[in-house]
Design a protein around this nucleic acid. Structure first.
Lengths: 206, 206
DNA sequence: GCCTATCGTTCGTTATTCCGAACAATAGTA
DNA sequence: TACTATTGTTCGGAATAACGAACGATAGGC
């Protein structure tokens, strides 16, 4: 019990207490199609550090992780959550629009737009084959998700509540809770999804 | 651009990016009736550091926070997360969605969502028969319009510029100028439109 | 009142995070 | 092939987080 924070050249000790951190950062970075240099620029963290973090070769500061989380449009607690979420696999399309695929590869989320406002905003084109399931980890606190079903039939579960949607209906709910979208119909379901990452109302100013 | 991470005696900069952390640790520690020394013993973190963390005078490493979380019978993401919010789901039925029709009644614009943020935000489901024309009066200054063409073919005219869109493409333009959307194809055109009113721009979210 | 125990804070040293530049590995282009 | 760009990694130096000990403050016990 002497090695304070033993590391140095090879053997990792404290670095990998959160083994998912490096993978998570790496996965998010790739989902946004960013290089180390680009993420470094957007986050203000040296790319050498990001490289080390992704390989779990260092024990970063809260501040560093926070800056990375922010650049990756998420929050620090999201990034540090232990359970790896293999929900999305990054997949590149012809037009350069990143496409996210669900694990069963029956759902496809295309990021068709994003805006940097005081709040951050993204919208998606969502398609699901019959039986397709899209499970989302909670988004950052205060996030609102809006789903408009263009065609087909969906079942949406937020926290414990379940709603069925038919074509033409829309649903709005908190995205900062675990939620699941299932195509319960026989045909392809098609929807537009808008995601607003916002200041929780009644938030303190400093 | 010299101050790397300015701190030093008094003025905190990076330390309080997660202002709740110190309070959270302190609250948990007191909830268990632990002194700094006791928590130090159980967690393996020097009590001087715990003291500084609780007063947001340092920017701890992930490892340190993790050891503290563990000693306090919780997880690191719990400690770093802000308080939860009540659940809410808002379900809008098909009948409740207002539909706007263009003058030639060949275009239909369904308002599928709106949010009051610092900026005002609306999004639409847009459908146009072949030959349909949608002419818009200029929206308030600073408005940004984003169009994502799901299917068909559109021609968008903003001020003097004309752009042709094919399925899968998207376009972003100033909405505070007169603009016109024409379905130049032979089939129904289908698009998602997002409209953001606000911020004279130059505003960013951090 | 005095002594002792315990509390949280401050101080000097050591270890390591972080940075920027240099480097190697990989493509893409002429 | 050589030249250029871009990728991720490695390396030395500066900034600082973590440590342990020392310090003042507070409260009991005698």
């Amino acid at each position: 019990m002497s090695t304070r924070r033993g590391r140095r050249n090879g053997n990792v000790s404290e670095a990998d207490i959160t083994p998912s951190l490096g993978k998570t950062i790496s996965r998010l970075r790739k989902a946004y199609n960013l290089s180390l240099g680009e993420l470094s620029e957007q986050s203000g963290v040296a790319k050498s550090i990001i490289s080390q973090i992704e390989r779990n070769e260092t024990n970063p500061t809260i501040g560093t992780v926070w800056r990375l989380s922010r650049a990756l449009d998420t929050t620090i607690d999201e990034v540090l959550k232990d359970e790896a979420q293999p929900n999305f696999i990054e997949h590149q399309t012809k037009a350069g629009i990143p496409i996210l695929e669900s694990q069963d590869s029956l759902c496809r989320l295309a990021i068709i737009g994003a805006l940097n406002l005081v709040e951050y905003l993204q919208w998606y084109d969502f398609r699901a084959e019959p039986g397709g399931v899209l499970e989302s980890e909670p988004h950052p606190p205060g996030t609102v998700e809006h789903l408009y079903l263009i065609a087909g039939e969906l079942e949406v579960t937020v926290a414990d509540e379940i709603r069925k949607l038919t074509a033409g209906e829309s649903l709005r709910y908190h995205g900062d809770r675990p939620h699941k979208i299932v195509n319960t119909g026989q045909a392809i379901a098609h929807a537009t999804m808008v995601l607003v990452e916002g200041t929780p109302q009644g938030e303190q100013r400093r």
